[in-house]
Amino acid sequence: MILNWNNTFAVGNNNIDEQHKELFYRLNKLLEAMKEGKGKGEVITTLDFLEEYVVKHFTDEEEIQRKNNYPKLNIQHKQHEEFKNELKELRRTFESTGVSSLFVINTQQKMVKWCKDHIMSSDKELGNFLMKNTK
């Protein structure tokens, strides 16, 4: 299960859409590194970048919501915090147990499902709001 970007994921805001594309790319890179049994260093480097990128993306997205008085900012923020916590847990598990087939499958299912669900529901709703109310 890989995250393939297509226009069904577009929310209608170029900045958010471009960041989502990059997020898909980075998640795929992480999953690929784990599946191929790449060295721990490469997986950690990819995780480091992904964690930093997620913080940047969520900060940017929440700033757009603040500027436009988006009524569901608190819900989005909570969901973003949950995803950041999932990444931290992923790192803790990886650093303590390494990579197993089950670990890769669980990571893939959790991360891919979260991204797809969040974009297709919460972020699409945000995109519709922004199209109607952009300042």
Score class of each variant (00 low, 15 high):
3 L>P: 02
5 W>E: 03
6 N>V: 10
8 T>H: 13
8 T>P: 02
11 V>F: 02
11 V>K: 03
12 G>R: 01
13 N>V: 15
15 N>K: 01
15 N>M: 01
17 D>W: 00
19 Q>L: 00
21 K>W: 00
23 L>E: 00
23 L>P: 01
24 F>T: 01
25 Y>H: 06
30 L>H: 06
30 L>M: 15
32 E>H: 12
32 E>N: 12
34 M>Q: 07
36 E>W: 10
37 G>E: 12
39 G>P: 06
40 K>P: 05
40 K>M: 11
40 K>S: 09
43 V>N: 03
43 V>K: 05
45 T>F: 11
47 L>G: 05
48 D>Q: 08
50 L>Q: 11
51 E>P: 04
52 E>R: 09
53 Y>S: 04
54 V>Y: 09
55 V>P: 11
56 K>S: 01
56 K>Q: 04
56 K>R: 10
56 K>M: 05
57 H>M: 11
59 T>G: 05
62 E>D: 08
63 E>L: 12
64 I>R: 00
65 Q>E: 01
66 R>W: 03
66 R>V: 08
66 R>P: 00
67 K>Q: 09
67 K>R: 10
68 N>W: 08
70 Y>H: 05
71 P>M: 11
71 P>N: 06
72 K>A: 13
75 I>W: 07
75 I>Q: 13
78 K>I: 05
78 K>Q: 08
81 E>T: 10
83 F>A: 06
83 F>I: 10
84 K>P: 01
85 N>A: 14
85 N>Q: 14
86 E>G: 08
87 L>C: 11
89 E>T: 15
91 R>I: 11
92 R>I: 13
92 R>E: 14
93 T>S: 14
93 T>I: 15
99 V>D: 10
102 L>C: 10
103 F>R: 11
104 V>S: 06
104 V>Y: 08
104 V>M: 10
108 Q>G: 07
109 Q>S: 11
111 M>E: 03
112 V>H: 02
112 V>W: 04
112 V>N: 05
113 K>I: 02
117 D>F: 08
119 I>K: 04
121 S>V: 14
122 S>Q: 07
123 D>M: 06
124 K>F: 06
125 E>D: 12
125 E>L: 13
126 L>Y: 07
126 L>C: 07
127 G>L: 06
127 G>M: 04
128 N>A: 12
128 N>I: 13
131 M>W: 00
133 N>W: 02
133 N>A: 02
134 T>K: 09
134 T>H: 02
